[in-house]
């Protein structure tokens, strides 16, 4: 059977948003295709939430064009009927019960979603007859998630959606999103958690200081997520260690600053530990790379280049 070719569900073209002199989002170009889970990554204050508010027509762009389902995103009555939105900082009506709030949302979508609400509430273990003001943050998120998914939207826009969910519920959330995508849905999801993005997303865009650093497939990203190793030892030992580490598979020796040697290491742990065990170390740090470091490594870009780098998608 011939499958339909994917279409652009969401597109941002040259989108810029200025608040006074400051560009919260600058010249962002993104296209999200149908059926994919697209991650939108960046540190706090990078412009992720601003971009999502622009998509939802809550903020108006200074420049550029945004389309949802091939239509201007200003046509909210039409476009918002086909999407669901959840924010980690979503504010719901505290004086309504979960059920009352969901019935209000259902009426705005113009349908009867009682059955679907029941199914989702069961999966998320949500008690709908409690006043929203008395919910914990995690339970409010559950209500928000049910509200976003009850009408089986074509596009889900999620802004740090698993914020406030306990680990068990995070797993339920991930499973729900995977099922949703398997059913043909598309997801545009912002996060600052690489782990979450790595599990769910097909492609990822990284934004920093309002500018798009790049867009990459998640497979490519995983290959570059080498660990950061910092070894502190005497100068003579460090010199020898740097030489021997350079021939380890998956190791890239970085700078030596003072009595600290910096390595990037993507190989198996055992050979590295065996090598380090031969030396008298003063200190050893092994950490996961920051998101930005992954993207910088992927694009082999440093800070000075970022300032002039234009956004682009890796094919």
């Amino acid at each position: 059977m011939e499958t339909a070719s994917p279409t652009a569900i969401l597109s941002l073209r040259g989108v810029t948003k200025r608040f006074g002199d400051k560009a919260a989002v600058a010249d962002v170009d993104i296209t999200v295709m149908s059926g994919e889970i697209f991650g939108f990554l960046g540190p706090n204050g990078a412009g992720k939430t601003t971009a999502i508010k622009l998509i939802l027509d809550i903020l108006r762009p200074t420049r550029g064009r945004i389309e949802l389902f091939g239509l201007s995103n200003r046509l909210t009555t039409v476009t918002h009927r086909r999407l669901g939105y959840l924010s980690g900082e979503m504010v719901l009506d505290d004086d309504l019960t979960g059920r009352q709030y969901l019935l209000f949302v259902a009426s705005s979508y113009g349908g009867n979603y009682d059955e679907r609400i029941k199914v989702l509430a069961g999966q998320l273990e949500a008690d709908l007859d409690v006043r929203i003001g008395n919910y914990s943050r995690g339970n409010k998120q559950k209500i928000g998630l049910i509200a976003a998914m009850m009408h089986q939207p074509e596009l889900l826009i999620l802004d740090e959606p698993s914020s406030g969910l306990d680990p068990l519920m995070q797993e339920v959330f991930i499973k729900l999103i995977q099922e949703y995508r398997a059913g043909g849905g598309t997801v545009f999801m912002s996060s600052h958690s690489l782990a979450e993005v790595q599990r769910l997303c097909d492609r990822v865009a990284f934004i920093r200081a309002g500018k798009l650093v790049g867009v990459a497939k998640i497979d490519g990203l995983n290959q570059t997520s080498a660990k950061k190793v910092v070894v502190t030892a005497g100068a003579k030992q460090l010199k020898e260690l740097a030489h021997r580490a350079s021939i380890l598979k998956g190791a890239t020796v970085g700078e030596t600053s003072g009595n600290a040697l910096h390595l990037t290491y993507g190989g198996a742990m055992q050979p590295l530990l065996q090598l380090l065990a031969k030396y008298e170390l003063e200190d050893l740090t092994i950490r996961e790379p920051e998101l930005e470091e992954i993207f910088m490594t992927y694009y082999q870009t440093d800070d000075s280049e970022l300032a002039s780098k234009s956004s682009g998608e890796l094919k």
Partner: peptide, 17 residues
């Protein structure tokens, strides 16, 4: 101020509505 207007604007309700 509370933030509930943002939530309403994410629904298929136009600003004028």
């Amino acid at each position: 101020k509370k933030g509930t207007l943002l939530t309403q604007l994410s629904l298929p309700l136009s600003r004028s509505k």
